[in-house]
Simulated scan of single mutants.
Amino acid sequence: MELSTLAILALVAFTAGFIDAIAGGGGLLTIPALLTAGLPPHLALGTNKLCATFGSATASYTFYRRKLFNPSQWRNALIATAVGALLGAILAHWLPSDWLNQFLPVVVFACGLYLLFSKTPAAPPTTAAAIARGRQWPQGLTLGFYDGVVGPGTGAFWTVSSLLLYPLDLVRASGVARSMNFVSNACALSIFIISGQVAWLLGICMGLALMVGAFLGARTAIKGGAKFIRPVFILMVLALTARLAWQHWFGLT
């Protein structure tokens, strides 16, 4: 891969990490970018999991260190997410490349539209109530499985669903999302490593850039977010995925 292409992908990863730590959806940018750079779909998914693990680890540790995520309250969700991600990554490994080439733009485009037009649920009036543990199993299995198969938008889906299901404010819901995202990324990555579907040099370079973006983004989120970035980011994602769909569905460039 040319040095200029590597630099562009690293810049994309930095942007994705920053946005992902604030509102989720970083994979909406990195997966189309990897596909546009010419990586086969399985290799793009595996490489994306490698760089995403860097970013989600940084962001989740930031929330944990600031006491905005308590692992003991979310034990069921952590286990369920790990199981779901492993099963999802195994399924993704066996899906034909042609299916993924046509399937990925659809999923990314649909998630982008959802994130563009959806509104973040209001936080409950109090956050002192206990966290329900039974709800964590279906939530973790479903979102973990989705992250293992594809992944774009998982962080945002975790944030929104956690606000709907538990007495959390937006910052703590973001802490849950970052932590669960790290678990599902790491578990799915292990499957892609075993199957040899990771471009290590590219993934590490993008991962380091994504870590820096996630480090800055997590602090921005904790301070109140930067919501004005989100519409521009999602519109850019939609344009990129529309190009991918045009290329893979109609054979045009």
Rank of each mutant, 00 (worst) to 15 (best):
P167W: 08
R172F: 11
D98V: 10
A21N: 06
A218M: 10
M236V: 14
I79H: 04
D169C: 12
G224Y: 03
L9D: 11
G25S: 07
A92C: 12
W94D: 12
A37H: 06
C51P: 02
H248K: 06
W94K: 04
A173R: 01
I19N: 04
A89R: 01
A186S: 07
C111D: 01
G203P: 05
T126V: 13
Q136C: 13
D20H: 06
P41S: 09
P40E: 14
K49M: 13
G155I: 11
F233S: 01
W200Y: 15
S162P: 08
A16P: 10
S184K: 04
G207A: 08
T241V: 12
R178Y: 04
T58P: 14
G175K: 03
I229Q: 00
G224M: 12
G224P: 05
A188P: 03
P152M: 10
L208D: 05
L29W: 11
Q136F: 15
M1A: 10
G225P: 00
S195I: 04
A129K: 05
L141F: 10
A85C: 08
T81K: 02
R178C: 06
W158V: 01
L240P: 00
A239C: 15
S60H: 07
L91F: 11
S118Y: 08
L68G: 01
V149D: 11
K49S: 09
G251N: 04
A218Q: 01
L78K: 00
T36G: 04
F14P: 06
L238I: 10
V107A: 07
Q247F: 11
S184N: 09
S118W: 08
A89F: 12
L113R: 00
I22Y: 13
T53D: 11
G151K: 00
A33V: 09
L50E: 07
